[in-house]
Amino acid sequence: MSEPILRATGVTIGFPVTRGIIFQREVGRVQAVDGVDLELHAGETLAIVGESGCGKTTLARGLVRLQSIDAGTIEYLGEDITRRSGRGLTDFRRQVTMIFQDPIASLDPRMRIGQSVQEPLDIHGIGTPVERKRRVQEAMERVGLNPEHYNRFPHEFSGGQRQRIGIARAVVMEPRVIVCDEPVSALDVSVQAQIVNLLEDLQRDLGLSYIVIAHDLDVVRRLADRVKVMYLGRVVEEGTGEQVYTAPRHPYSSALLAARPVADPVRARSQQRIVLEGDVPSPLNPPSGCRFHPRCPVAQPSCAQEDPRLEHAADGHGWACAYPLEP
């Protein structure tokens, strides 16, 4: 396989835990992301799924260097960018951009949307004012916004159109990679479909690579070529969408998939349900051994001691479980 565009090796991200209000002192560190490896190839979509608190958003922020990482390396086109700063970091950020979940929170309400879309070009000093304006209009057209709306304000747009503005801001830089953090979860179903189709069109036309962070497994199934399932900061299963969705080997992936409501009343009534008990444990004090064992329906006594490593089959499908499910 060709050299990946983006490669992360052993990425670990922690947050300090402090006590005290005036004399704050660090009493520990929460490991939000714990030794994650990842490769993103040209033109593909890699999805990262898991429950809230599994570290997927922290990982995404780390990959675009919005979050400093404690250990591990991130390479972009074979170059280590983990410790880059200044000019080098700016160059990287021109090529790897991000789309956020809440399009309302990520747009300045007092800025005209044309200016909002143009802002990244201004910051990076790309082109002359005339060229910038042309690129903004192209980007707006590409995402299905009317360029005549250049002078409108965000509140004049519906949720779906605001998300289009967010996407226009990301593509105006002509990036190679876009990291999408829950790109459709704030939207209505019918609008969700519009955005999913738009992301697919942009990928085909511009040759983009995506990293999609999402908790909606059906949207992920639609968009992703490869999927990583995270639990408490670690990747517990990875593979192609086909492998993970039709033959999950890790009990957690299987439970996650079974938890999706089925839009079919006849099947919903007949379906045998494995409901995962309890909540995700606190990452402050992760369980011993396999981190999933307290909630695992097939856990064995040894799971409380031994921490399984991510092992891969010949076809690239990988899972971190001592007693994997039969395919």
């Binding site: 519906s158 779906g160 159109q161 179903v189 019918s190 609008v191 969700q192 479909a193 519009q194 999913v196 189709n197 697919e200 909606d216 497994l217 059906d218 949207v219 199934r221 639609r222 999706r260 089925v262 839009a263 079919d264």
Partner: peptide
């Protein structure tokens, strides 16, 4: 029909996800 057809989980085979145009 539009709502049902735009569900990503129910419509895996289709080339594009059905979308209800406009708002």
């Amino acid at each position: 029909w539009g709502l049902l057809a735009s569900l990503p989980g129910r419509n895996l085979a289709s080339e594009r996800l059905h979308q209800i145009p406009g708002s």
